[in-house]
């Protein structure tokens, strides 16, 4: 099929049709920050961090397919400012205290803060208090660290097929739940495969026994798995 011609940050790039802006950018060494996106999972465009400027409109690069002649800005002033504000909002709604976190040093949210130059949070914190669910024999979830990216929900549905994880409620009270909001340890559908642990970008879902900064995750396993499955 004919290649499409797109312009990203002033660079003219030939792209295969059907690919997203994010894919084309990454293939060409142009980095766009992401959080809810994960190779191997369906994209939902929820975190809004991968927004790019497309003719003055802001679109999520993970869900927007390239078209011939597109001119895209991934680092415009507006885009960078909005990304930072969105990141601040994410920090303010949870309790993200890196020095106490199992994922300190291995956390995608922390990496984003460094990358986007977020030095402080201007909006007041909510200091929400969610109970830690450590009822599962091997894993635990600390919802105060959850950024609601939905990767656990998608990997459980799309890759493991267990449908253990889901969302409950809406607005500021939305949260991830196991089965029908039962303690994780009693969720009958859970196969204890641990994929949710590997894809969780923060220290929210973690292996038991990991201490400060000891948790390292392998979200790229999902892409490997889905690629292998596709090959049969």
């Amino acid at each position: 099929m004919d290649k499409l011609r797109v312009k990203i940050d002033g660079r003219t790039i030939l792209a295969a049709p059907g690919k997203t802006i994010l894919e084309v950018a990454e293939e060409n060494g142009i980095h766009i920050p992401t959080l809810c996106h994960l190779d191997g999972l369906r994209d939902v465009g929820a975190c809004r961090l991968c927004i790019v400027d497309l003719y003055g409109q802001l679109v999520t690069s993970c869900t927007t397919k390239v078209a011939d002649g597109m001119e895209i800005g991934t680092q415009t002033e507006t885009v960078r400012a909005y990304r930072r504000t969105i990141l601040e909002l994410l920090f303010a709604e949870g309790n993200h205290v890196c020095s106490f976190c199992v994922s300190n040093g291995g956390c995608e949210l922390q990496d984003l803060a460094c990358e986007l130059g977020m030095h402080s949070v201007r909006v007041p914190y909510t200091y929400r208090r969610e109970r830690v669910d450590a009822t599962h024999p091997r894993f635990l979830i600390d919802r105060d660290r959850c950024v609601l990216c939905g990767r656990c929900v998608r990997v459980c549905q799309e890759v493991e097929g267990a449908h253990t994880w889901g969302f409950a409620e809406r607005g500021a009270t939305v949260r991830v739940i196991t089965d029908l909001a039962v303690p994780w340890g009693t969720a009958e559908s859970c196969t204890s495969c641990g994929k949710c642990v590997e894809v969780c970008p923060t220290g929210a879902i973690a292996r038991k026994g990991a201490s400060n900064a000891e948790m390292r995750k392998h979200p790229d396993l999902v892409a490997e798995l889905t690629e292998r499955r596709a090959r049969g």
Binding site: A46, G171, A172
Partner: peptide, 15 residues
């Protein structure tokens, strides 16, 4: 009434 899926609407409106 925000569905709570995307960050600006879920967290921003509360702020």
């Amino acid at each position: 009434e925000s569905c709570g899926q995307c960050v600006p609407c879920r967290s921003g409106l509360v702020r």
